[in-house]
Simulated assay, not measured.
Amino acid sequence: MYGGYLLGIALSLVIYFVPMMIAFYRNHGRYTTIFMMNLFLGWTMVVWVICLVWALFGASRINHASGGSNKYEDLERISRLKSSGDLTEDEYQAEKSRLLNQ
Rank of each mutant, 00 (worst) to 15 (best):
V53L: 10
L39R: 08
A59M: 12
V47Q: 02
V53E: 00
S69L: 10
R61K: 14
V14W: 02
A94S: 14
N63L: 06
T32C: 06
M37W: 15
L41N: 07
K96A: 09
I22L: 06
Q93S: 13
Y5F: 15
N38T: 15
G4R: 10
Q102P: 00
M37F: 14
G4V: 14
E91T: 03
E76F: 04
A10H: 09
P19G: 00
Y92M: 09
D74V: 05
F57L: 07
Y16C: 03
K71I: 11
E91P: 06
Y31K: 08
A94F: 14
L99N: 01
I9N: 04
W54S: 06
V18L: 10
I22K: 04
Q102W: 02
F17R: 02
I22N: 03
T33V: 15
S97P: 06
V14Y: 02
S66M: 09
Y92E: 11
K71E: 14
I22D: 02
L11R: 04
L99G: 01
S66N: 08
G68A: 12
G42K: 01
D74I: 06
L39S: 11
R30I: 04
Q102E: 09
G68R: 10
P19Y: 00
I34W: 07
Y92L: 08
D74H: 07
L41A: 12
G8L: 14
Y31M: 14
E89S: 15
K71N: 06
N63H: 08
A10G: 13
T32N: 11
R30D: 13
Y31D: 02
I15R: 01
G29E: 13
I15D: 00
W43Y: 12
S84G: 12
L39Y: 13
L52C: 01
S60V: 08
G58Q: 03
L13F: 08
Q93M: 15
Y5R: 07
L100W: 02
L6I: 13
F17M: 06
L75N: 02
M20A: 13
A59N: 11
A59P: 13
V46L: 15
N101W: 00
G3P: 01
S84E: 14
S83N: 12
V14T: 03
A55F: 05
N70W: 03
G29A: 14
G29Q: 10
L11E: 04
W48R: 13
Q102F: 01
F35A: 15
R30C: 07
L99E: 00
Y25L: 07
N27P: 02
S66V: 08
Q102A: 00
A55C: 03
I22M: 01
S66R: 10
A65G: 11
E76M: 09
A59R: 15
R77A: 13
G42T: 04
S69T: 12
S83Q: 14
